[in-house]
C-alpha cells in the first residue's frame, strides 16, 4: 500500500473515532434555569432523581387528605421553572426545550402530568411576596435538615442512599435503627441534629 493511501485510511479512521468519542462525551440535556429563586425546595441531586416520588407522595396527601401548601407541588414546579418568551408570555413547561421536556426527551420518558395539570404558571405568580421567600433557602437543604419530619420511611431510605457525608442520620439504616428512631420520636427525646444545617 502506498503511503498516501495508508494516511488517507488512518485519517478516515481517526475521523470516525473522533465522532464516536464526541457522542460518548455528550453532556446531557440543556435544562433552562429557573425563572424565580436560586434555591429549589430540595437539593438538585435529590430533585433530579426523586422528584416523581416526592410529587406522588404529596399528591396523595393533597388529594385524599386535603393537606395543602407543602413544598413538593407540581404547581410550584411550574411557577418557578416555566420560562417566558420574548413578549413576556409564559411558555408551557412541557414545550420543546423547556424545563420538564428537555430532560424527559433526553431520558425518553413520557410526561403524563400535563394532559390534566396546567403547564403554565399561576396567574400573577412572580408579582407576589411568595417569590421573595424563594430567594432565601426556604426548605433548604431539606433532606439533610430533618428527614424524619418531611419524608415517609420509604422516602427516607431512598434519600439515605444520596447522603454522601456520614452524618448522624445514617443511623436510620436497618430495622434496629428504625425501632430506635421510633422510640426516640415517641418519647420525644432529642433527636440527633445535623449541626451544619441548623
Amino acid at each position: 500500500m502506498c503511503p498516501e493511501r495508508a494516511f488517507g485510511l488512518w485519517a478516515i479512521l481517526w475521523l470516525l473515532l473522533a465522532s464516536g468519542l464526541g457522542h460518548a462525551s455528550d453532556e446531557g440535556p440543556i435544562i433552562p434555569p429557573a425563572s424565580f429563586g436560586d434555591q429549589c425546595v430540595a437539593d438538585t441531586e435529590i430533585m433530579r432523581k426523586q422528584h416523581m416520588s416526592l410529587l406522588n407522595h404529596q399528591r396523595d396527601e393533597t388529594v385524599i387528605e386535603g393537606v395543602r401548601g407543602n413544598p413538593f407541588s407540581l404547581v410550584g414546579c411550574v411557577n418557578c421553572h416555566a420560562q417566558k418568551d420574548d413578549n413576556g408570555q409564559a411558555i408551557r413547561i412541557d414545550a420543546e426545550g423547556q424545563f420538564c421536556e428537555s430532560c424527559h426527551a433526553y431520558a425518553a420518558v413520557k410526561i403524563d402530568c400535563f394532559s390534566c395539570h396546567a403547564a403554565l404558571p399561576e396567574e400573577g405568580f412572580g408579582n407576589t411576596h411568595e417569590v421573595i421567600g424563594l430567594n432565601t433557602p426556604v426548605i433548604a437543604p431539606l433532606a439533610a435538615a430533618d428527614p424524619a419530619k418531611h419524608f415517609s420511611h420509604q422516602q427516607r431510605q431512598v434519600l439515605q442512599s444520596h447522603r454522601v457525608a456520614a452524618g448522624p442520620h445514617n443511623q436510620l439504616r436497618g430495622n434496629a435503627a428504625l425501632k430506635n428512631i421510633i422510640s426516640t420520636h415517641t418519647t420525644e427525646h432529642q433527636r440527633p441534629v445535623n449541626s451544619d444545617t441548623r
Partner: peptide
C-alpha cells in the same frame, strides 16, 4: 408489631406538619 409501630410513627409525622392541616 413493627408495622404498627411504623404506622404510629407516620401519624406522628403528619401531626408534626406545620404548613398545612389535613381535612
Amino acid at each position: 408489631l413493627l408495622g404498627a409501630a411504623a404506622d404510629s410513627y407516620t401519624l406522628l409525622e403528619l401531626q408534626a406538619k406545620t404548613t398545612a392541616s389535613a381535612a
